[in-house]
């Protein structure tokens, strides 16, 4: 594997991890907004408890992906920053309000109007951010971002406001909500709460099927290269087939109430979708002008980045393992954690 392919894989890997962890946090915000029924307060408390210690950690995957992109493929980063200036700025506002509102609500618990308002800001921002993130991904996948030399010529709105990117935005939102609901079934402290999120997961899962089918139909005109990959690249096809298997498995496991396993299957489903996107546009970063090869930094820079990546893995992975051991979900009926 060439170093630029390795770095490209690392960028895709951080996007997968951001979707699996950061994405689920956005999904948590969506369920906070949509909390209803007799256990409305418990649902929100569970989401806050699940996100509290970890949302900032999950958020770092985005930063790492961004840094790898601008260090490893600076030209692509520059082009995307210009072409997607507007949705990325809006995404930033979503990220800023989601994080701060969640924190203010967590640490300013008075049960008053102020706290409830922060809850609304947090959950609305959690809904808007994935939508914009998906629209940016859709715009990149569509191949509608065009350049002449270093200059972006496709406009600041057109590539991300077409039906295909909008459908991808909705799919991202649906996937994150689905993922959060599945994770929460495993973390719920009572059987009733578990059922609440199981029902939500099943309904959203069905919604995701519809959205995925819509995206697929729109791909033909909206993202021709992805469509061609579907038809002609055996590797991309295998990835998409594996995604379908994971999706059906997640659904079946939810039906059978095997929550732990359902969580793994749902994570596979979402991870494979992100990888499927990356595989179907390989080797392009901005089609058809920038590829992994022609936008990559000099080889010695790439080698050093891979060394830095290894250092990062050596430091971060043991820390994360320790973290997840500390915050293992406790089975229903166990002593609740002191901070709850």
């Amino acid at each position: 594997m060439s170093t630029e392919a390795l770095l490209g894989f690392a960028v895709a890997g951080t996007f997968v991890l951001y979707a699996l962890f950061g994405g689920a946090d956005f999904g948590g915000g969506v369920w906070d907004l949509l909390a209803f029924g007799p256990r409305k307060a418990e649902q929100r408390a569970l989401i806050a408890q699940a996100m509290g210690p970890i949302w900032e950690v999950n958020h770092v995957w985005l930063i790492v992906g961004l840094v790898l992109l601008f260090s490893g493929f600076p030209r692509a980063f520059a082009a995307l920053s210009v072409a997607l200036h507007v949705p990325l700025t809006l995404l930033l506002l979503g990220i800023v309000f989601r994080g701060t509102a969640f924190t203010f609500r967590t640490y300013d618990t008075r049960g008053d109007l102020v706290e409830r308002r922060w809850g609304v800001v947090f959950s609305v921002a959690s809904l808007v951010a994935p939508l914009l993130l998906g629209m940016c991904v859709g715009a990149v996948a569509s191949g509608d971002i065009r350049m002449e030399g270093h200059v972006v010529v496709s406009g600041f709105f057109a590539p991300w406001t077409r039906p295909f990117p909008i459908a991808v935005g909705l799919l991202a939102l649906g996937l994150f909500a689905f993922l959060a609901a599945v994770y929460l079934t495993h973390e719920a402290g009572s059987p009733e709460l578990r059922e609440d999120f199981r029902r939500r997961a099943l309904v959203t899962g069905a919604g995701v099927f519809v959205l995925a089918a819509t995206v697929l139909v729109l791909t033909r005109d909206g993202a021709p290269r992805v469509w061609a990959g579907l038809l002609h690249s055996p590797f991309a096809l295998a990835l998409h087939a594996a995604t379908a298997v994971a999706a059906v498995t997640a659904f079946a496991l939810l039906g059978l109430r095997h929550f732990r396993a359902a969580r793994v299957a749902a994570a596979f489903q979402v991870g494979l979708i992100v990888l499927g996107w990356a595989a179907s546009q390989h080797p392009y970063l901005v089609e058809p002008d920038l590829t992994l090869q022609n936008s990559a930094a000099a080889p010695e820079v790439q080698r050093l980045l891979i060394v830095a990546l290894c250092v990062g893995v050596a430091v971060v992975v043991p820390s994360l393992v320790f973290f997840f051991r500390v915050f293992r979900p406790r089975p229903p009926g166990a002593t609740p954690p002191a901070h709850a």
């Binding site: 840094v67 790898l68 601008f70 260090s71 600076p74 520059a78 930094a297 000099a298 050093l304």
Partner: peptide
Amino acid sequence: FMGRYGAVIGL
């Protein structure tokens, strides 16, 4: 700036 020097300051 980032397109030209992102690679230099990435580390």
